[in-house]
Design a binder for these strands. Structure first.
Lengths: 143, 143
DNA sequence: TTAAATTATATCGTGCACGATTTATTTGGT
DNA sequence: ACCAAATAAATCGTGCACGATATAATTTAA
């Protein structure tokens, strides 16, 4: 007995993630940001000068995704990529002036999204925590 | 005050969807299926001979995604694509013998995934319904 | 009944994501 | 000190996803 996609949790996740992505698009497009770029920008705003590996650990992305993404952000003038002096294998990513300014403009995006859902912030936070718990069950961050 | 990705619902969704995708990969890879192809296969198993548009409405995908995906499935020998006799604009997709056989082999995948999560089926179903509700709030299926 | 509008699918270009591999650097063991 | 193992990014190839556009068939309305 095959399950229809509509009845699958995986599809609910897949399609809702796409719907959220689509809801973010009109908020990010005026800023010239894609959604993953917005995540990188937010992460750097909280802690600047992270290595590619640190960003990847937080955002669950590999260098094969991050490197071209960061290069695009670099050529947009939002970040700088510099080899770490102590360990030349590592590349540190930091926000430029323009990057900081852009992050400031993007600060209202999560609230605007929350309003689009029409749900109480507490419900959204609950869902976030349930999802994070499921994610850790499937793919624990390595010890 | 910028939110870190870790605190955002959108990122929880994004990253958990990826983790689920990654959990499905080892189940689907032996069958030669990608995750979206698995969704198409499941949908056709429930209702064969759907048009590209019908599949897209259920899976929330556009023809620009489905057409190449279906062509890959066709060249793998799992589906046939034929123009509808009554309306030549429409392309109907149906499972081949091999496609039916593959769908049968894939029937156990959702249960295997549920076991990977270690959560009760009722919890997973609840989460599915919460997500579907959020999705419909953001992107109602057009009337 | 023919021209305009609509609908269904396909095509093109860009960006994200992953597996597999490569290159450069650092670390560890002997 | 040296070489092997480990680590950090980068590169390559493939597939998914979307916006924008194109093409072809059908429907509608004048």
């Amino acid at each position: 007995m095959t399950l229809a996609p509509t009845d699958m949790l995986c599809f609910a996740l897949h399609s809702t993630a796409h719907a959220v992505h689509a809801a973010y698009a009109p908020l990010l497009q005026p800023l010239g940001l894609t959604y993953p770029q917005y995540l990188v920008l937010s992460s750097l705003q909280v802690l600047d000068g992270q290595t590619v590996g640190q960003l990847g650990a937080e955002l669950r992305l590999e260098s094969n995704t991050l490197t071209p993404l960061l290069k695009r952000m670099e050529s947009s003038g939002w970040v700088r990529r510099t080899r770490d002096g102590k360990d030349e294998r590592q590349v540190r990513v930091s926000l430029t002036e323009d990057g900081h300014a852009l992050a400031a403009r993007a600060a209202g995006v999560p609230r605007a999204f929350a309003e689009k859902t029409g749900l109480p912030l507490a419900d959204l936070a609950d869902l976030r925590d349930i999802l994070a718990a499921l994610r850790e069950r499937l793919k624990p961050v390595k010890a």
